[in-house]
């Protein structure tokens, strides 16, 4: 119920039309990674996925925002089935463990590798979590996603979201290249997202 209401509200307010640009709609373990500029981002990708894909996909959300407050944590845990992670520091291995658990179970994840919301239209530098997960799970598809307009609809620090149509662009999966170092991989992943803008 809550999930249907959320999808309905998202579409009414900001649309969130999906644009498939080289990604198949088959159900398979996937890491969707996207630019991050608004609290709408998680909802937008989640609502844009077809039912079959949405059912096996968990957004990864920051515990310090989505875990706080009754309404937010209700949305995050009950409707979105999100994995909450602690980004206050601590060992990276521990931080990523709940994500590995989902991937081991054959589920898909939505992550925002910038780590926090940026102001710009293009994504900033990516943090290394995406690289770690890509190395640990070589069979998981790496799908770049570009979110168009959410920073206008609900920018950082804004009181309320306003109705501006957003689009969710799903790009072709990026390949793994033997011998590529961390920095090279992260930059390639970042430009895959930027390339969809």
């Amino acid at each position: 119920m809550i999930d249907l209401a959320l999808i309905g509200l998202t579409r009414f307010l900001v649309g969130g039309h999906p644009v498939w640009r080289g990604l198949s709609q088959d159900v398979r373990p996937r890491l969707y990674f996207a630019n991050h500029s608004s609290h709408l981002d998680t909802l937008l990708i989640w609502a844009a996925l077809p039912d079959a894909l949405r059912g096996v996909t968990h957004p990864v959300a920051a515990a310090d925002y989505w875990g706080r407050g009754d309404l937010r944590s209700l949305i995050a845990t009950r409707a979105l089935d999100a994995v909450l992670i602690d980004r206050s520091g601590g060992k990276r291995d521990e931080t990523l463990e709940p994500l590995r658990e989902k991937l081991r179970a054959g589920r898909s994840l939505i992550i925002f590798p910038e780590g926090t919301r940026s102001d710009g239209l293009l994504p900033g530098p990516f943090k290394s979590g995406l690289y770690q997960l890509a190395c640990d799970f070589p069979d998981v598809e790496l799908a770049p996603v570009y979110l168009k307009n959410p920073s206008r609809a609900f920018p950082k620090g804004a009181l309320l979201p306003v109705p501006i149509s957003c689009e969710v662009h799903f790009g072709a999966p990026i390949a793994r290249i033997n011998g590529e170092d961390k920095a090279g991989f992260l930059e390639r992943a970042r430009s895959a997202v930027a390339g969809l803008s």
């Binding site: 950082k156 306003v162 501006i164």
Partner: peptide, 27 residues
Amino acid sequence: SFYTLREFVSLTPTRPTDNLSLIGAFY
């Protein structure tokens, strides 16, 4: 009116700082 305003504003290059005036317009 809601949908046409949404269409108009979406195509108009508004900036994130227009959020407050758009709240006044829409809500």
